[in-house]
Every structure is written in C-alpha cells, then in structure tokens.
Design a protein around this nucleic acid. Structure first.
Lengths: 196, 196
DNA sequence: TGGACTGCCTAACGATCGTTAGGTAGGGTC
DNA sequence: GACCCTACCTAACGATCGTTAGGCAGTCCA
C-alpha cells in the first residue's frame, strides 16, 4: 500500500523545468527521462501519456496560485489598498517561488494541445473570478467592464515578470509596489475624472 | 531582374500564422507548405532552413513595432501624457493589426532556439531603449530603476492583450485609456508620495 | 533554336518522436 | 519456497521530422 511518490514527483519537477524552458514540442520524453535518470519507456509507468503529464504539471501550477490566493485572504486588512497590495505580493511570490510550474502556465498555455487546454479551463476560470471579486471589492463603484480590463492589465503586468525578473538584481518588493501604485492610483484617478 | 516576391511572402505569412498558433516545434514544414499549396521541399528554394524562416518572421514582427513607434513620434503633443497615450495606442494597434507576426514575438521568443534568439536581441534592445527614452522624457525626475520597472510592467500589460483581446467585444481604445491612466497616475502619485 | 534561370516537383536520407510489448530484479506476503 | 507487486529495463513499432539530391516544365534572353 505504500506507494513511492518520490520518483513520480521527480518526473513532474523535471518536466516542469524542461517544458517551461523549451516548450512542449521540443521536450522529448527521452530527454526528460535522462534528466531523472531513467529510460523514456519508464515514464509510462507513472503517466498515461505525454499530454497527461503536461496536463498534470499545468494543473499543479494553477493549484499553487489558487492556494496562495486563499492563504493571503486569511489575513486582516486595514484598507482596500493594503489588501490589493498583499495579493499582488502574494501572486508575484507564488509565481517566482515555483517558476517552473507557474511560468509554464503563463507562457505555454496558449499553444498547448486542445485536449490539454480544455481540462485546465475550469481551474483557470476559478482563479480569474477570485481576482475579479477582489478588484470589485477594493474598487467599488467601478463598472464591471473596467474591472475586467484592470484585471487583465494587472495580470499582464505581473506575469510578464517571469520574462525579466532577476532575483540577483533586487527583490520583487519594488515591482510589487509600483504595480499596486499604478493600478490603484490609476483606477482612482480615472473614477474621479469620469465622475466630474 | 523582376523577382516574384508573392510566393515568398505567402510562405512568411502562413508561417507567422502557424507559428503563433501552434508554436515552433508543432509547426512542421509539411504543414506549412500545404497551407501555401506547395511541397515542403520547395520551402528550401526560398529559405535556408526552418530556423532561418523563423528568424525572418520574428524580425518582421519587430520591424512592425519599431516602424510604428517612429511614426507616432512624428506627431506634435501638447503634453507628456498625450504623448504617452499616443504611443500606448500605437503599440496596441500595431500589435493587433499584425497579430501573427507580433504576437509570436511576445509569446514564443523565450523558447526559440538559441541561434534564433541571438540574432534578434539587438533589434529588441533597440525597441526597448526607445520606450525607456520615452518614459524618461514624459516622467522626469523619476529614477532610472523605476523607469525600467514601469516600462516592463507597461509592456507586460499591453502585450498580454494578445491573449484575451477580442475585437468583436469592443475596441482597444478603452484598454489603452485604462493602461495609460494607470501608469501615468501611478507614477505621478508615487513621485509625490515619495517626495513628501 | 538553344542555353540559362526560376520555381516548383518526387523520392529518399537518417534521425527522432511517442508509444507498446514483454522481460526482470528485488522486496513483501503467505 | 511460491507468489505477487513495484519500478524499472530492452527492443522495437510506425510515424513524422528537417533536409538533400536530382529532375522537369516554363519563361526569358541571345
């Protein structure tokens, strides 16, 4: 009954790394297997197919982001702005602490096989709706269409950091500040301008 | 002396479409050729290799963005904000008017073969430095490190629109407004807060 | 009329791909 | 000691890949 999960996990980790670095088509099962120290055929003992493995890696990436969002929500906030700030920090930290899994979701989802994409849509929608609810709560009186645009812009800005962020050059803190400032003040300013 | 460019151009166009839709590894020359109505081997009459073709498509995408930036710069602006706004609009319009070429640059560059990436770096750097100069001009007194962060966040927000923008659901104008508002007011607000 | 050039073709090369079939060493259970 | 399960292995399958060699119809110029 004791199942050894470590080999399976090692395959998942290696797959996440290779997939996010090289893309789906350029990552062969033989290369992946050699990274783990086994043969390609042995991957099939743990996973049904390359697509199933891909799906599971992407699923794990999404779970990481959702878990973090829920953890952040546990805290108490003295303002809408600090709540937004905490979530921006949380998203960025979760993103970069598990880059192989999460970056894959940002950069490779679009070109993933249709069967893979379909399985992931519900979980992605779930995460998006969490953010929509958050923005609606901290930016009341902002129309839904604008909330939607803000969320997409915010996601774009945050997720782009996987392409350029270099931990050696400084923390994510400053980026987190700038982004929060931008979308907070921007929305606020816009609201006042339109109201007048 | 008259060279027939139409076939070559048709290959480039089809390649841009397939590459941005399916990724490099999943786009075979046989599929590409069938799209154009020729055989895979005939692609080699026009291009040296698959990588050379890929490089040229990416190069064209970058040229589109740079040309647009320069065209926008021709105009007169009555404020830094309107200048920024014009460039944001221009970037978004150029991006979406040539989506197959430009989206490829945003989404697939990271996983492109090293030899392809190396050839494109100078042109990408050029475009980035144009934006750095722009932001430095319209946001004076903002430290260089923050300009850099702002540019990266702005790029991320704008470029993410390739994943979700649906022309059928409305124009890019509103997104352009929201983004400009955010980064303008955010930087402004931040400057005042830090100064105090 | 003939040679050169253009723009495609067919056929095939070796390499590599995801995947399957079947075997085997080693540990746990009765 | 017989059995079974786990976690791998070797070997091979057909398919597909990028690429090359060589041929052929058409056009153009001398």
């Amino acid at each position: 009954m004791t199942v050894d999960l470590s080999a399976r996990q090692r395959i998942l980790d290696a797959a996440a790394g290779l997939l996010s670095e090289r893309g789906y088509g350029e990552t062969s099962l033989r290369l992946l297997a050699s990274e783990v120290g086994i043969k390609a055929a042995s991957v099939y003992y743990h996973f049904d197919s390359k697509e199933a493995l891909y799906t599971e890696v992407l699923q794990a990436g999404m779970d990481i982001m959702i878990d973090r969002f829920e953890a952040v929500e546990e805290a108490d906030f003295d303002s809408g702005r600090s709540r937004l700030q905490a979530h921006v920090s949380g998203h960025l930290d979760a993103l970069h602490s598990n880059l192989q899994y999460t970056a894959l979701h940002v950069s490779e989802f679009r070109t993933a096989p249709a069967t893979v994409r379909t399985q992931l849509v519900p979980r992605r929608d779930e995460y998006e709706s969490m953010w929509t609810a958050l923005l609606t709560a901290v930016l009341p009186e902002t129309p839904a269409t604008e909330i939607s645009i803000l969320r997409l812009g915010l996601f774009g800005a945050m997720n782009s950091s996987i392409d350029w962020f270099d931990a050696a050059k400084g923390g994510l803190g400053e980026f987190s500040d700038v982004i929060t400032d931008a979308f907070w003040a921007g929305a606020d300013n816009r609201k006042r301008r339109i109201a007048s």
